[in-house]
Amino acid sequence: MNEGIVQAGAWRTDVIQDFARSELFDRTFQEGMDLVEETATYLDGSGRQESKLLSRNAALAYAGESMRLTTRLMQVASWLLVQRAVREGDMPAENAREDRYRLGAEDVCRGATEEDLPSGLLILLDRSERLYERVRHLDRRMYVEEAEGETPNPVQNQFDRLQAAFGG
Rank of each mutant, 00 (worst) to 15 (best):
Y132C: 09
N57V: 03
L35G: 04
N2V: 06
A147Y: 06
E3A: 13
M33C: 04
F159V: 15
A10G: 00
G9H: 07
S55H: 08
A77D: 01
A63R: 13
W79S: 08
E88A: 03
S51V: 02
Q7M: 04
A59V: 03
G104R: 12
L60C: 01
A85G: 05
E145K: 09
R84L: 12
P118H: 02
A165E: 14
K52C: 02
R134S: 08
A59Q: 11
E37A: 15
D126A: 13
F159C: 05
L103R: 09
T41S: 14
P154F: 09
L80I: 07
I123D: 12
D139Y: 00
T13A: 13
R110L: 15
G45Y: 00
A58M: 01
F166D: 09
T28G: 00
E31A: 15
D90I: 00
R140S: 12
M74R: 15
F25W: 11
V76T: 05
A10D: 07
R27C: 03
E37H: 06
D160P: 03
V108T: 12
G45M: 07
D18G: 10
E129D: 14
P152S: 10
G4W: 01
S128R: 05
Y132R: 10
L54C: 07
E150L: 13
V86H: 06
R21W: 07
L73E: 02
E106Q: 13
E50F: 05
E50D: 13
E129V: 01
E145H: 08
M1D: 08
V82R: 12
S51A: 15
Q49I: 13
T71N: 13
V144T: 12
R140W: 05
N57D: 15
L103D: 07
G149A: 12
D126H: 08
A40M: 07
S46F: 01
S55V: 04
S51Y: 04
A40L: 06
R56D: 11
G89D: 03
W11R: 13
Q158D: 06
